[in-house]
Design a protein around this nucleic acid. Structure first.
Length: 798
DNA sequence: GCAAGGTC
């Protein structure tokens, strides 16, 4: 008998082939796809790995034109199946020719069932009579795989059909609402507006948070603070305490308490408690936590996942798409530590391996599909060359270390102190044993020293009792990390798609900034949907869909029934939308105009200046009376541009506010305005002596120093891409080139000669600079992606 | 050119 085994991904094919053939499987190529083959008794077995879904659904060509298609027709249209992985489909057809039995060995979940059936459908176009079985396993271990193949089951067609329904409902709602919004607001082509079951509720989360922030009414309050001193072994130790009342909402009350306390020169300890507290390590990484932690290190969620995918393909970390936060027993923790022994983390790995017992931490979710993300090989810098890849690898290694490290032990203490009849509270927190924190330095704790005290003891007050005025703050914006966690909590998207959804919201210009906030068009779209198609903006739509899918899978409802019901609902929604088409369109158009509006044109004085995107994707300011007025101004290519809503005091042109990586600068739009020249001026050109050196921006948004007489003089210097740049008056003593000061938050100013070859620079820095100066090389061989992402650096570099 | 879900 000839048996064909189909897996969901290439690596699963490799693994299963190895297990079932005891490593004897031979590799060959069929229609350009790798296939494994071995004999099992008198049977011949072939194994092929798919690439996830190999089919997709799409509407027939007749419905492709957005302008000409009646949306009421689209609601009820039946989509076609389209092959999206042609080479794999070709291989399947070829392999089907002499196959007697197909074994579906895709992932053990709803989408896996459908992916398997997709492959089966292709096989059956060639061999309609082929028999089919299903192997169900939840881990790619020898035991699990052998058990699954020793006990083959039947394909769960209702389960596959439930996944198909999900596809069809998502497409119908997505396509109808996307086209409606785009047509009503006349945003066709590149700048279309979109809606979907996952993206719209996610966008609504961000819009809601922004509304809370905007509507927040801060309240003033006051707090009281006192410092005390106790002499321990002849050394005075000072510590701080806060008034036990917490915030005072009336200044009068705070002030009278302050006056009462301030009278007393000594405090009396009312109570002192000290405790040793064990701090458990963080749980192993699932996808969401991993991406959230990477986000804290400055990576965009989608960027972090792409790097994790690379590291997985390179054999450095385990599968990065997992919900599991409990190591299965099949992961040998000591073996993992041994593998890391030859990496730069060797010393730490050996230290952890020397523990008598290793008890890993565990999270709340235990699934059986994949283990949590952990390192599967010790790597060296030579193997992982790119700095961002290395930082992600290190994060995964260190998280693994933390999960197998001992508890940290902290000494916590609290004292209540009476001062003039007012009670103050002092808290102490000192790490006694760093435990896992030693291996996972990303979470810093602030220590506070509090000497041991005894009830009844007196302590000296130091300095006056201070009153601090403060105001309540609005909730913080989401970070990509906290947004991922919220999406997970609400059941929006999956471990494999959440980061993509966020990226989509950026790409569609619905959100912007490192801490995503909605653009005016993002707000307008959510507003319109909330008013007329509320269902699509709520996470409940996903929850409801899940219930429907379950009913299809259980056989209590048919696929047709569920889809019809959904179509009817969509049809009702569309009817309401159509009735309000004009109003919705105008509302969104107005928001879009406002989004790009900067101010009145400083040249013709009649038109307005707006942010315009060139066909190549770069942006600039232009007058809306073009071609009558040809006034344009260049713009920084990265970050957020908005109107500063004021005019330049020097030249009267409108001002823009530019926010990049959390830093805002306001400047005049006119490139010839003296304030702009001043802002970017470095000094006289040291090469031609004629022009002026100033900070300029390349097409890709990178800044550098260039000469004003370019192209007559081609003098340029690279610049650090981050930090505030201030020119130094004196040229470099060693080489005579200009010198700048770079100011970065949390670091002392960095004084830098612009000349990369300056003899004053030591060899170490020279090498570092040289390696930084050639990022072009790794960019070239980057793997092709489904879609080009011209501005990914804008949002992801963070 | 639309969605969301797999995977590269």
């Amino acid at each position: 008998m000839h048996r064909l085994i189909v897996t969901e991904k290439f690596n699963a094919a490799v693994r299963i082939a190895t297990i079932l053939s005891d490593g004897k499987a031979k590799r060959s190529s069929v229609e350009g796809t790798t296939v494994f083959e071995f004999a099992s008794g008198t049977d011949r077995v072939r194994i092929v790995g798919l690439r996830g879904h190999i089919l997709n659904i799409d509407y027939p060509e007749a419905l492709n034109s957005w302008e000409r298609t009646d949306l009421r027709e689209l609601v009820w249209a039946e989509p076609d199946k389209v092959i999206t992985a042609g080479k794999i489909a070709a291989a399947l057809r070829k392999l089907a020719e002499d196959a007697d039995e197909v074994v579906i060995a895709t992932d053990f979940d709803r989408e896996g069932e459908l992916i398997g059936v997709e492959a089966l459908d292709i096989v059956r176009t060639v061999r309609p009579s082929v028999t089919v079985r299903r192997a169900r396993f939840s881990a790619l271990t020898k035991w699990d795989v052998e058990r699954a193949f020793g006990d083959l089951a039947e394909v769960d067609f209702p389960l596959a059909r439930s996944a198909e329904s999900r596809q069809s409902i998502d497409l119908a709602w997505g396509a109808v609402l996307t086209r409606f919004l785009s047509i009503a607001s006349r945003q066709l082509g590149r700048d279309f507006l979109s809606a979907g079951r996952v993206q719209s509720p996610t966008l609504a989360l961000i819009v809601d948070r922004e509304r809370e922030i905007t509507n927040f009414a801060p309240e003033d309050y006051w707090t009281l603070h006192a410092a005390f001193r106790k002499t321990v072994d002849g050394t005075p130790v000072e510590f701080e305490a806060d008034h036990a009342h917490g915030p005072f909402w009336a200044h009068r009350e705070a002030e009278s308490a302050r006056v009462r306390a301030d009278v007393a020169a000594k405090g009396t300890v009312l109570e002192y408690l000290a405790n040793e507290r064990e701090e458990r390590p963080p749980p192993p990484f699932n996808t969401t936590m991993f991406a959230a932690e990477a986000n804290r290190l400055g990576f965009g969620a989608a960027q972090a996942m792409r790097i994790a995918e690379d590291l997985y393909q390179g054999g450095f970390i385990s599968y990065p798409r997992t919900d599991n936060t409990v190591y299965p027993t099949t992961v040998n923790l000591r073996t993992v530590l041994e593998k890391l022994a030859d990496s730069p983390f060797g010393a730490e790995a050996r230290e952890l391996a020397s523990q008598e017992r290793i008890v890993p931490s565990r999270g709340r979710t235990q699934t059986t599909d994949h283990p949590p993300i952990y390192p599967v090989a010790g790597a060296t810098r030579a193997q992982i060359k790119r700095e961002d890849h290395w930082r992600i690898y290190e994060l995964v290694v260190r998280r693994f270390f933390a999960t197998v490290a001992p508890n940290a032990v902290a000494l916590t203490s609290e004292a209540k102190i009476d001062l003039g009849g007012e009670t103050f509270v002092a808290e102490g927190f000192v790490l006694r044993s760093s435990g896992w924190r030693k291996y996972y330095p990303y979470w810093q704790v602030r220590e506070a020293r509090l000497p041991a005290l005894a009830a009844g003891e007196d302590v000296d007050r130091v300095g006056p009792v201070a009153i601090k005025d403060d105001r309540t703050k609005p909730p913080a914006r989401y970070s990509e990390g906290s947004l991922l966690q919220e999406m997970e909590r609400l059941g929006l998207g999956t471990k494999s798609t959440r980061h993509d959804i966020i990226k989509k919201l950026y790409d569609r210009k619905f959100i912007e900034g490192k801490y995503p906030r909605p653009t005016t068009s993002g707000v307008a779209v959510i507003q319109a949907l909330e008013d007329h198609a509320e269902r699509i903006t709520k996470p409940e739509m996903t929850a409801h869909l899940e219930e429907d899918m379950e009913e299809i899978a259980r056989g209590v409802r048919t696929q047709q029934d569920v889809i019809r019901e959904s179509q009817q609902m969509l049809s009702d929604v569309l009817e309401i939308l159509e009735k309000n088409r004009q109003a919705i369109g105008q509302e969104i158009e107005a928001a879009l105009r406002q989004q790009n509006y900067i101010g009145p044109c400083n040249v013709c004085k009649e038109g307005t200046l707006n942010v315009i995107r060139s066909r190549r994707g770069s942006r600039f300011l232009g007058c809306d009376r073009y071609p009558a007025c040809r006034n344009t101004h260049p713009l920084p290519q990265t970050g957020i541009i908005e109107s500063a809503e004021e005019t330049c005091p020097e030249c009267g042109a409108p001002m823009i506010r530019h926010t990049d990586r959390g830093r805002s600068t306001t400047f005049c739009v006119a490139s010839d305005c003296p304030t702009v020249r001043e802002m970017n001026l470095i000094g006289r050109c040291d090469k031609c002596g004629q022009g002026e050196l100033s900070i300029r921006h390349s097409m890709r948004g990178k800044r550098f120093v260039g000469c004003s007489t370019y192209p007559a003089c081609d003098n340029t210097y690279p610049l650090p891409q981050r930090g505030l740049i201030i020119p130094d008056k004196e040229p470099c003593k060693a080489c005579g080139r200009p010198v700048i000061k770079v100011i970065m938050r949390g670091r002392p100013p960095w004084i830098l000669c612009l000349n990369m070859e300056c003899p004053a620079k030591n060899g170490k820095r020279k090498r570092a600079a040289a390696s930084k100066a050639k990022p072009k090389k790794p960019r070239a061989p980057r793997k092709k992606r489904t879609k080009p992402e011209p501005i990914e650096a804008d949002i992801a570099a963070g």
